[in-house]
Design a protein around this nucleic acid. Structure first.
Lengths: 102, 102
DNA sequence: TTAACATGCAGTAATACACCTGCATATCGG
DNA sequence: CCGATATGCAGGTGTATTACTGCATGTTAA
């Protein structure tokens, strides 16, 4: 796990909009862009421009958290969260100290 | 775990300089600021201004990852990474899917 | 008491980020 | 073919981040 990968993953997760996108993609996988926008309004009441959502999806893809594939004129987005991502998040665990478990 | 806390923690971890500071603080706990600067040069060969390091430490403290206390004219910095931080990082685990374990 | 030390506060510059609008491009349906 | 649809690309704006320098403040030690 390189430093750059950790940067990308943590940075991708450090935004509540992107975390919400992940959450929505988990409930309904394989959403095209316009549907991610629609879900954002429907489920979270957050109206974001298509471009903004597209940008967030690009950040998530760069971090390897989602995968995309073209189906005709729609771009299918789906989660791609594996052990490596969990392992990256667990970077912090090495440094845990307060093992308070009463 | 609020959204804001997740933001702070992930953002704090999304920088290799800060991750290196955490790593150095784990090897030698309770370092004053000037010593964190010195370690940065000595161990990583990265020369950062005192102010820059101070700012990084502030970000880490805001995320609750370190604690500080004044000892005379020096400010002692020490790690304060507990179960809550690990739990926050494991936010991603809910969404893991590729359970490939052959 | 004074000099050296450790840190904070203020201000600056460059870059990155999160949002937007507008135009271009590609695909599907009639 | 043509209009509607789905996306990309270019560019703009306001704010945050990361780095710096310079000056001020409080503390220890000679």
């Amino acid at each position: 796990m390189t430093d750059t990968q950790l940067d990308l993953i943590f940075k991708a997760l450090a935004d509540s909009t992107r975390r919400r996108i992940i959450d929505r993609l988990s409930k309904q996988p394989v959403q095209p862009l316009f549907e991610v926008c629609a879900s954002s309004v429907a489920e979270d009441g957050v109206a974001l421009s298509r471009q903004t959502v597209s940008q967030h999806l690009a950040v998530l893809e760069k971090a390897g958290l989602i995968e995309t594939s073209w189906k005709g004129r729609t771009k299918a987005h789906s989660l791609s969260i594996g052990d490596d991502h969990v392992a990256a998040a667990l970077w912090i665990k090495k440094y845990k100290q307060n093992g308070e478990k009463p």
